[in-house]
């Protein structure tokens, strides 16, 4: 019995290794015939390290290993989607997210009011973000939630996507994702923590050859900047229509690393002075019953969405864009250094 279990565990690990390799194949097949670095950059050593760590794979394998009592209910099917029903596989859990705009649920066919310091009216254009380094809290302990690779998760990074390409979210994707899924030991968890964004080792890889969800064109910023950690775009109705620009103005929020040096396209290591990765810690969070709320109204609290205070309309995370400081403060980021320093006010427990 035990022997069979071990053998099956080995098979599972092998399959997972293959699966990870396979998800890499977007790259592998791309380079086919060239025999060269498929990513087009030599930045892939970092990428491989990520796979080597196998954050998701190892976790899932451990889970299988431990799971001698797994019921034969076919839970493996579409595991990422069926997470809700997945109590049979102990250790796998999902964390639900909700997007809100003040008191209202986020949808793409609604105009929101009372936003920012000028009580602006706005309609959404985009609402997506990456999160990583998810940890469950148990007293003073932090236990990593090992994210399972899927279309929505790769290498420990998850894409949360609240737009469905309907209504005013015209250029999005039809698919949405409002949860993250991963493995953790059974335990009494009383909180959760995570970072917003894409971690350094993956942030400057070539998105053309990256695995989903790291190959969403709309979320890649540029070579040196890497990914847009958050893309929350709105169209704001002006109280006093501008004579040049008309009755509305965009208010785009693109959070990402800035002040980057190095040359990512040619594979140089890139270093960004301003990391701009918010750290979110939510005590009093029960993973079994609670969800995490992301509130756009809280993000733009104190900011005048109708007045462009420099740079492009909205906040593009760069130094000198005076549309940024309020949003950064709300995310617990120091705008000058990009460090996560303070309490954030954008994410909460429901």
């Amino acid at each position: 019995m035990r022997g069979l279990g071990v053998r099956l565990w080995m098979v599972a690990v092998m399959a997972l290794v293959m699966a990870v390799g396979c998800s890499d194949d977007g790259d592998g097949s791309a380079g086919e015939g060239e025999g060269a670095d498929p990513s087009g950059t030599s930045d892939t050593h970092d990428d491989h390290d990520m796979h080597g760590d196998g954050a998701a794979g190892d976790g899932a394998a451990d889970d299988l290993h431990d799971d001698h009592d797994m019921h034969a209910t076919g839970d493996g099917d579409d595991a990422a989607q069926d997470a809700h029903d997945d109590h049979d596989m102990h250790g796998m859990m999902h964390i639900g997210f909700e997007a809100m705009v003040g008191d209202a649920a986020f949808t793409c066919d609604q105009t929101y009011e009372g936003l920012g310091s000028s009580d602006a009216r706005a309609e959404p254009l985009d609402f997506r973000l990456y999160v990583h380094d998810v940890r469950l809290l148990s007293g003073d302990d932090e236990i990593p939630l090992e994210l399972a690779d899927s279309d929505w998760q790769h290498g420990g990074v998850a894409l949360l996507d609240f737009e469905d390409a309907s209504g005013t979210c015209q250029n999005g994707t039809a698919e949405t994702n409002t949860m993250i899924m991963g493995a953790a030991p059974d335990g009494d968890y009383d909180g959760i923590a995570f970072k917003v964004g894409v971690p350094v080792p993956m942030n400057h890889d070539d998105p053309a050859s990256a695995a989903s969800p790291m190959n969403v064109t709309a979320l890649h910023w540029n070579w040196n900047g890497g990914y847009k950690f958050m893309r929350l775009d709105m169209r704001v109705m002006l109280d006093d229509p501008d004579t040049d620009a008309g009755p509305t103005t965009p208010y785009n929020f693109h959070l990402g690393s800035t002040v980057c040096t190095g040359d990512a396209p040619t594979g140089e290591d890139v270093s960004c002075d301003n990391a701009n990765r918010p750290e979110v810690t939510l005590p009093d969070f029960d993973p079994a019953t609670d969800t995490i709320v992301l509130d756009y109204a809280a993000l733009v609290a104190g900011e005048d969405l109708q007045v462009d205070e420099g740079g492009k309309p909205g906040c593009m995370s760069f130094p000198g864009d005076m549309d940024c400081p309020a949003l950064f403060e709300n995310l617990g980021l120091d705008y000058d250094t990009g460090e996560a320093v303070g309490d954030q006010a954008v994410f909460s427990v429901k």
Binding site: V11, A15, A19, H71, T73
Partner: peptide
């Protein structure tokens, strides 16, 4: 069931 899971995960990469 475990095999199914293994194969599903294996194929999941080319979802």
């Amino acid at each position: 069931a475990l095999w199914l899971l293994v194969l599903t995960i294996g194929a999941g990469c080319s979802s």
